[in-house]
Simulated scan of single mutants.
Amino acid sequence: MTLFAAQRINCDVIIDEGELTARIFNIQRYSLNDGHGIRTVVFFKGCPHHCPWCANPESISGKIQTVRRVAKCIHCATCLNDADECPTGATERIGRDISFAALEKEVLKDEIFFRASGGGVTLSGGEVLMQAAFVTRFLKRLKSLGIRTAIETAGDAAPEKVLALAQQCDEVLFDLKIMDVAQAKNVLNMHQSRVLENFRLLVEADVCVIPRVPLIPGYTLDLDNMQAIINFLAPMKLTELHLLPFHQYGEPKYQLLGKPWQMAGIAPPDEREIAQMRRMAEDAGYRVIIGG
């Protein structure tokens, strides 16, 4: 019997989840940017927000979507836009339902990398809070197996839901975006007052919360917005802050989904702009990591 197997057999928490399922759209292995160590990242489908810069537009809808990659299509007309019948993979289904047991089996394939690197499993999206019941129980299960866990979230949900989920995590990667309440609502459909209250709640509950700031030209790449974030965080005595510079990697996905890319032609932040934001955070006492 291996050490890892023995650890699982001897765990105290046994959860019988029956037919509990989640809707996901990707499992990304060997990630180095979504928590400490080597991570396996599970992307959950569905998000209540409308961030113009979202790099995963396929995550926004909670529905399973079907797309067609024109470059792969051989116009054989045999598939009738059915992903199961398409011989080339040109017709592709985005999103799938997966059982609790099947997802556990998938992520534990990488267990040796977690234990060797101090990494673990990160649950992302979309927004994991939209499937909070599944996510909370899944995190609890991983914790019982000795697997380190993290979530990526914007924290915009009922406080009791956020706290119950976050308390099963070793790290909560918490995005702080537009600080102005009215602008956050109009641009992102985000309840910013609730987001900030939830952030405070997690800190007060001794959850390991790491604030992350996307640097988006025209939105959050702004001295006043950055200063508002620093002022908000100041009483909490946190030590680490992540800056996530905007990029154009998501543009092809919008084309595939037939959606307009609102950030077309917008240049990513240059080194000077990133350095300015970094300096503000470091002057406030934070260890800054670029890229998360």
Rank of each mutant, 00 (worst) to 15 (best):
E197K: 13
L142Q: 02
T136E: 09
D16S: 08
R115F: 14
N231I: 14
A264I: 03
F100K: 04
V209I: 12
L103Y: 03
V41M: 01
A264R: 05
A101E: 11
D82Q: 11
E106R: 09
L173S: 03
K143P: 04
G285D: 11
H242V: 10
G265A: 08
A90E: 08
I147L: 05
A158P: 01
V172P: 05
I14E: 15
I27D: 04
A77G: 08
L103G: 04
F246L: 09
F138R: 01
C86T: 01
L221A: 08
N189Y: 12
Q131A: 07
I74V: 14
E197A: 15
S31H: 02
A267R: 10
P52G: 03
F100P: 00
I112W: 02
L256D: 03
E171G: 01
P269S: 12
S31Y: 05
D156T: 07
A5G: 13
L173F: 02
G285A: 14
F113S: 06
A132D: 05
G291C: 02
E104N: 11
Y254N: 03
V172R: 03
L196A: 07
F43W: 00
G119S: 04
V41T: 12
A228C: 00
A5N: 12
D156Q: 01
L176W: 05
L145I: 11
R69N: 12
Y219F: 15
L188P: 07
E282L: 07
S31P: 00
C73W: 10
R96Q: 13
E197D: 15
K140Q: 13
E160R: 00
Q262S: 13
R68S: 07
R287K: 10
V195T: 03
L139D: 03
K72I: 15
I229M: 13
P48V: 06
D180F: 04
L241D: 09
N33L: 12
D34V: 09
S124C: 04
A234Q: 15
F138N: 04
P268W: 05
V203F: 08
I290K: 01
E271F: 02
A267S: 06
R96T: 03
Q248Y: 13
D170M: 03
A90F: 05
M277H: 09
I27R: 05
L20Y: 06
C54D: 10
R137P: 02
L165Y: 01
A101F: 10
A275S: 10
A164W: 05
R93I: 09
A6K: 06
P48F: 08
C76V: 09
R93V: 14
L80N: 09
L20D: 14
D16Q: 11
A133V: 12
F100I: 03
H49M: 15
I210M: 13
D12E: 15
F232M: 14
H75A: 14
D110M: 07
Q227E: 09
N225F: 08
D34A: 07
D175N: 00
M226S: 06
T21D: 11
R115K: 13
T78D: 14
T66W: 07
Q262P: 04
R200S: 12
A275D: 15
D175R: 06
F199E: 10
W53F: 05
